[in-house]
C-alpha cells in the first residue's frame, strides 16, 4: 500500500519533469498577464522554488515535507495545497455520490427487469437504454441536458454549485455514464441469485414471484453490486474532470486539469497523491467488505 503511494509520487515527479513547458516561465507569464518574464525573474523563481536542484533531491525534499504533513503551497497563491484540495473535495464528493445515486437509480430497475425477463423484449430494451448513456461523450450529453432542462424547460441552473438543483444535471451526466456498467452488474448478479436453490425453495413454497424477486433475490443480488460500485469511486475522477468543466463545479477534477495546464507542480503532486490514497483506501475497504460478506474468498498477496 505504501509502495503504491511511493510509486505514484515518483512517477508523478518524473512525468512532471518530462513535461515540456518550463513552470517558472509559464507561471510568471500567467502572472504578468501574458508577457514573457525576464531571464532574471525566471532564475529567481527557480531559486525560490528549489527548481534548480537535482530531481532526486527535489523529490526527497518533497517527501520530507509530505511526511510532516506539508503538501506545500501552490506556485500561484500562498494557499497551502492541502487547503486547496480540502476546499475542492466537497464539490467532487457531492458529484460522485449524486452521480452514483443516479447510476443506481437507473441501473437497479433496469438490471432487475433485464434479469427477470431475460431474453425477452424488456431485457433488450433496458439493456439498450442503459447503454445509451455510456455511449455519449459526457460533455456532449452535458450540453444537451443544459439546453433541454435549463434553457428550454427552465428547471435547473446551467452551472455552479450550491443547492440540490445545481447538482441534478451534472449528476445525470456523470451517472448515466456509469449506469450501463452497474446495470450489467445488477443483471448478472440477479441472474446468478435467481439460479440459487433457495429461490427455487421460495418459489416452491408458493410465494408470489414478485415477492420472491424483490424480497429474496434482490437483497442478495445487491450485496456484490454495492461493493463493486464502491470500487468505482476511484475511477469517478476521470469522468468528473469533464463534468466539472462543463458545469463549472470547483472540484478536484477541474483543479487537476488547471494545475496540469498551469504547471502548478505542487498542486499536481499533492493532488495525485491524495487521489492515490483515496484509490488505495477504497480498494482496501472493498476488500474488507468482501471478506466480511464471503469469508471463503481468499486473497492473493496483492491486496493493494
Amino acid at each position: 500500500m505504501l509502495l503504491v503511494l511511493v510509486g505514484v509520487s515518483i512517477l508523478t515527479f518524473l512525468l512532471l519533469f518530462l513535461t515540456p513547458g518550463d513552470p517558472a516561465e509559464t507561471i510568471l507569464r500567467q502572472q504578468m498577464g501574458g508577457r514573457t518574464p525576464s531571464l532574471e525573474a525566471i532564475e529567481q523563481f527557480r531559486q525560490n522554488e528549489g527548481l534548480n536542484r537535482p530531481i532526486p533531491i527535489q523529490y526527497v525534499d518533497w517527501v520530507t515535507d509530505v511526511l510532516q504533513g506539508n503538501l506545500r503551497e501552490s506556485y500561484y497563491q500562498e494557499t497551502p495545497v492541502s487547503t486547496l484540495i480540502i476546499n475542492r473535495i466537497p464539490a467532487t464528493l457531492e458529484l460522485a455520490v449524486a452521480g452514483m445515486a443516479v447510476a443506481l437509480t437507473i441501473a437497479i430497475p433496469t438490471g432487475i427487469i433485464s434479469a427477470v425477463h431475460k431474453g425477452k423484449a424488456p431485457d433488450y430494451l433496458s439493456q439498450f437504454a442503459a447503454l445509451v448513456g455510456v455511449s455519449m461523450p459526457n460533455f456532449w450529453l452535458g450540453y444537451i441536458l443544459i439546453i433541454v432542462f435549463s434553457l428550454q424547460l427552465g428547471l435547473f441552473p446551467v452551472a455552479g454549485v450550491g443547492g440540490l438543483e445545481s447538482l441534478v444535471l451534472p449528476a445525470i451526466t456523470l451517472g448515466s455514464g456509469m449506469a450501463a456498467i452497474v446495470t450489467r452488474l445488477v443483471r448478472s448478479s440477479m441472474l446468478e441469485v435467481l439460479d440459487e436453490e433457495y429461490i427455487d425453495t421460495a418459489r416452491s413454497k408458493g410465494l408470489r414471484e414478485r415477492i420472491v424477486i424483490y424480497k429474496h433475490a434482490l437483497r442478495n443480488a445487491l450485496i456484490p453490486v454495492v461493493t463493486i460500485v464502491g470500487l468505482q469511486f476511484g475511477y469517478l475522477l476521470n469522468g468528473a474532470v469533464i463534468v466539472e468543466i462543463v458545469f463549472q463545479r470547483p472540484g478536484l477534477g477541474a483543479l487537476l486539469i488547471d494545475a496540469i495546464f498551469a504547471r502548478d507542480y505542487p498542486v499536481v503532486q499533492g493532488l495525485v497523491l491524495v487521489i492515490a490514497v483515496i484509490f488505495v483506501l477504497t480498494n482496501f475497504a472493498v476488500d474488507l467488505t468482501y471478506r466480511y460478506i464471503d469469508p471463503r474468498i481468499s486473497f492473493g498477496g496483492e491486496s493493494a
Binding site: 450540453y143 443544459i146 439546453i147 435549463s150 434553457l151 427552465g154 441552473p157 446551467v158 452551472a159 455552479g160 468543466i245 462543463v246 458545469f247 463549472q248
Partner: peptide, 11 residues
C-alpha cells in the same frame, strides 16, 4: 467554459 458561460446568460 465559454459555452457554459453563454448558456448561463441565456438561462
Amino acid at each position: 467554459d465559454p459555452n457554459t458561460r453563454a448558456l448561463s446568460l441565456q438561462n
